[in-house]
Design a protein around this nucleic acid. Structure first.
Lengths: 200, 200
DNA sequence: GCCAAACTATGACTATAGTCATATTTGACC
DNA sequence: GGTCAAATATGACTATAGTCATAGTTTGGC
């Protein structure tokens, strides 16, 4: 690795480390880019060579966090268990990860909502958590249709959207709550309900 | 009405009217508060006497729009029709309203997501569209349980959350799309699916 | 080791949302 | 119609994200 590359990684890590500390201390909104750069010992302009906006730094935190979760989730998808359980497990993995850092989750869900809309990124570059979840659920459902675990009459894409929606809104409700409800429990019950149907 | 009150209403309307025009012309982001106040013939500080932030003005647009929709929706809830149809109709009313102004919907959904999280407002003051929808669906489901339209074993609150989630994510997907899909159609099919269940 | 080109850092500068002390207007009371 | 308190308007000012022309650094080829 060249000196240049080494320095680049070092600077990016320094920004990451310093901002992580400051965000924890005083929150994202109350931390200025000026503070981050001063603490990191770099000029303000340099910050924007690494992250195009302050929000981009937030998304980087999200990526780092999601790298870990999606490894776990990938594991779940490999298992040979009923489709319903598989989908539940995927959602529970995600929920657990969200529960580990409520503040970060709160900030990220906003950015992801923004990101989904602007459709600046195509399906594949988009690291968006919602999009990834949707694709994984879709794959599990397709498998489920093959296994006769799931009605063959369903539109897989549509059900994946329903499940992603359940995740998203449950997340929002949980974020709003003051910790008395468990995100992973609430989502698990909802999946049961979807599989059973609510009509008489 | 006193002169003071009259002037106040006039100024608020002037801001509303001018900003509406400017937002349509150049978009929300590209319109500055300075421009709005200059066009409206008021000082910058005055703007913030009427709307605490630029986003609050956006929410005001949302309120005005939602006043109309929720009148229609209120009507639907009165009708004596099967629960599934009633819920579909509610969602379709909302969807139609969203389809009328995609740009505004895009901006509002972000604000509503923000608003839901900060839980600054209690259930009743909160004009948030998602929250209102949730409550209406909840009421319809309760009625449905009474009518034996819906399984009595369900947790009404939970199903309302599922349906709100379906609305929210369908909205996001539709906002991202380039107009080829119909928001109201897509949501209608999803409700059928939820009533029937997807498990085998 | 020297040079030019490519890359990276810098910080003064710009743009814009939002604040706040002060000035102006209004309404009620005499 | 004069006077005072409350309500409202004002715009210079602040805070902060993000830009960009310039300066400095690294690299690979000679």
């Amino acid at each position: 690795m060249s000196l240049r590359e080494k320095k680049k990684i070092e600077t990016k890590n320094k920004i990451f480390e310093v901002s992580g500390r400051l965000f924890k201390e005083k929150g994202f909104e109350n931390t200025t880019v000026d503070e981050i750069t001063k603490e990191a010992g770099i000029a303000k302009g340099t910050f924007f060579n690494y992250f195009s906006t302050k929000e981009a730094l937030l998304l980087y935190f999200g990526e780092k966090k999601e790298e870990l979760v999606y490894d776990l989730i990938e594991n779940e998808t490999m298992k040979n268990i009923p489709t319903k359980e598989k989908i539940k497990n995927i959602l529970i993995c995600l929920a657990d990860s969200c529960e580990k850092d409520k503040e970060l989750t709160k900030l990220l869900i906003l950015e992801h909502t923004k990101c989904m809309q602007h459709s600046c990124l195509g399906p594949d570059e988009c690291k968006n958590s919602l999009y990834r979840l949707n694709k994984l659920v879709c794959a599990s459902l397709e498998e489920g249709v093959g296994n006769k675990d799931v009605k063959s009459s369903i539109d897989v894409k549509m059900v994946a959207d329903i499940i992603t929606g359940i995740h998203l809104y449950s997340l929002i409700v949980w974020l709003k709550s003051d910790g008395e409800i468990s995100f992973s429990n609430s989502i698990s019950e909802k999946i049961d309900m979807l599989f059973e149907g609510i009509g008489k």
